[in-house]
C-alpha cells in the first residue's frame, strides 16, 4: 500500500497532504480537507452528488483518486461564493426556480452548471439540459432544476406558480 505526497489548490488555497493511494478525491475533500459541501451518495459514479471542478471541468470526485489531483486546481461548492456574500449566479437561479428541496444533490448540480457557464459564451440550453442527465435528484422532480438550467442558457421561462 503506497502513500503519496500531493500538492493541490482547493478553492484557490494551496493544500499539501500525504494520502494513501486508494483514497478517493471525494473522501479526501470531505475528510482531510474539510469541504463537506462535497456530497457522497453512491460512490460509484451514478448519482452525481460528488461532482466538483478539476481544472475547470465538472467531474465525479468519487471516480478520481486524491493522488490523481496532485498539481490540479479543485473547486467545490464552497468555492462558488464567499461567506455571507452574494450567491453565485447558478446558486441564485436554482434558489429562485425552486431547484432544490433537501439539497443533497445540489452541490453537484451547482458544480456542473457552474463549470458549463463559466466561459464568455453562454452554453446552449441543450448542452445544459443534457448535462443534467448526470445528476439524480430524489426530491424535486427535476422541473425546477430544468427551469434554472434554461434560464442560465439565456432562455426566458414562465415564473413558478406560487402555491402560498
Amino acid at each position: 500500500m503506497s502513500t503519496h505526497n500531493i500538492h493541490l489548490q482547493i478553492n484557490d488555497r494551496p493544500h499539501d497532504a500525504s494520502v494513501e493511494g486508494r483514497l478517493t478525491l471525494c473522501d479526501f475533500l470531505r475528510g482531510n480537507a474539510g469541504y463537506t459541501g462535497v456530497h457522497v451518495g453512491c460512490e460509484h459514479g451514478v448519482c452525481g452528488a460528488c461532482t466538483v471542478m478539476v481544472d475547470g471541468l465538472a467531474v465525479r470526485s468519487c471516480l478520481m483518486l486524491a493522488v490523481q489531483a496532485d498539481g490540479c486546481s479543485v473547486t467545490t461548492v464552497e468555492g462558488l461564493s464567499t461567506g455571507d456574500g452574494p450567491l453565485h449566479p447558478v446558486q441564485q437561479t436554482l434558489r429562485e426556480e425552486h431547484g432544490l428541496q433537501c439539497g443533497f444533490c445540489t452541490p453537484g448540480v451547482c458544480m456542473t452548471l457552474a463549470a458549463l457557464t463559466q466561459g464568455e459564451q453562454k452554453p446552449s440550453s441543450e448542452t445544459l439540459i443534457n448535462a443534467m442527465s448526470g445528476h439524480i435528484c430524489r426530491c424535486t422532480g427535476y422541473q425546477g432544476i430544468r427551469r434554472a438550467a434554461l434560464r442560465l442558457a439565456g432562455e426566458a421561462v414562465a415564473p413558478v406558480e406560487d402555491h402560498g
Partner: peptide, 11 residues
C-alpha cells in the same frame, strides 16, 4: 464501499 489497498504508480 471503499477500494481495498493497492500500490499506485503514475509512470
Amino acid at each position: 464501499m471503499k477500494p481495498a489497498p493497492f500500490d499506485y504508480y503514475a509512470p
